[in-house]
């Protein structure tokens, strides 16, 4: 009976916590334990693959919301949200013109938690804005200045990738909004100098007098759409780019971006 009492008293949250923290499993996973001492706090930062993106100590002013606006972190988190919801949406979406639209309707009408689509779409919009604001802040604090010139360049490419990710995703619901936004957007590619069939210089690229090389089936826009209009191939190309190509490149560059933040001295501040 008294043993039972002991057992019960041991079941208090605090003791239970202690017991868990002493277990081999816990210690094998969380090497450091609860970071209650400065040393442990530092070891946590060093020992965790995710947390070691950050330095062990940061400047006070550097983490003030007033200074950073938290926009870079928000952008990264939105990227993760979009990856997660996007992965889930891929279970119900078929990138063919027969099914793309009705699959989206089904996400709205019958798929439980079809709200994933809303989170994905609004998250994408939010990410574009947060990227802009991030760059705005970086400029206003002059944080692109040496030694961070290269990382600013990587950031510019990430901005472009964000816009392209959003742009390619815009087509996938295959409704009027999607098709015509992409038509308007992709039509600009046909005016690419030399590489677009309505671009300046394209009609100079001929073999002899009258064998033109750049036509609507061999220009930059075709490379983007896989056809002369926004059709089935365009849907597939955008899908592949949206789900595989661009995220891979963006992920790669993000790794570079984060690494360089550390290498270039963390969050910027006055020298």
């Amino acid at each position: 009976m008294s043993q039972l009492k002991d057992l019960l008293s041991n079941l208090s949250p605090a003791k239970l916590g202690e017991a868990i923290q002493k277990s081999q499993i816990y210690r094998s996973v969380f090497r450091v334990g609860v970071p209650v001492s400065d040393r442990k706090r530092m070891l946590v930062m060093l020992g965790n693959v995710f947390l070691h993106l950050h330095p062990v100590k940061v400047r006070k002013s550097g983490i003030r919301l007033r200074f950073t606006w938290c926009m870079g972190g928000i952008t990264f988190f939105l990227f993760l949200v979009l990856t997660f919801t996007g992965l889930l949406l891929m279970f119900y979406y078929r990138p063919t013109i027969e099914y793309a639209y009705v699959d989206i309707i089904d996400l709205r009408e019958q798929v439980p938690l079809g709200i994933m689509r809303e989170i994905h779409r609004w998250g994408a919009h939010a990410m574009v804005i947060s990227v802009w604001l991030h760059m705005f802040r970086v400029f206003m604090t002059g944080s692109y200045k040496p030694p961070r010139e290269f990382n600013w360049g990587v950031g510019v490419i990430l901005l472009v990738l964000t816009l392209l990710l959003s742009f390619t995703g815009y087509l996938l619901p295959w409704d009027q909004l999607a098709m015509w936004a992409i038509t308007v957007g992709s039509n600009m590619a046909r005016a690419t100098p030399f590489a677009g069939y309505e671009g300046p210089g394209a009609n100079l690229l001929t073999l002899g007098e009258n064998i033109p090389l750049i036509s609507s089936t061999s220009d930059a826009r075709f490379a983007l759409l896989g056809g002369t209009r926004v059709g089935e191939m365009a849907l597939l190309r955008f899908y592949v780019l949206h789900c595989v190509g661009l995220p891979l490149v963006a992920g790669f560059l993000m790794a570079v971006h984060f690494w360089r933040i550390r290498r270039d001295g963390g969050i910027s501040g006055p020298l």
Partner: peptide, 11 residues
């Protein structure tokens, strides 16, 4: 759990 539920469509 919501995510798990997502995997079971209603039709």
């Amino acid at each position: 759990t919501a995510t798990a539920r997502f995997m079971f469509p209603n039709v």
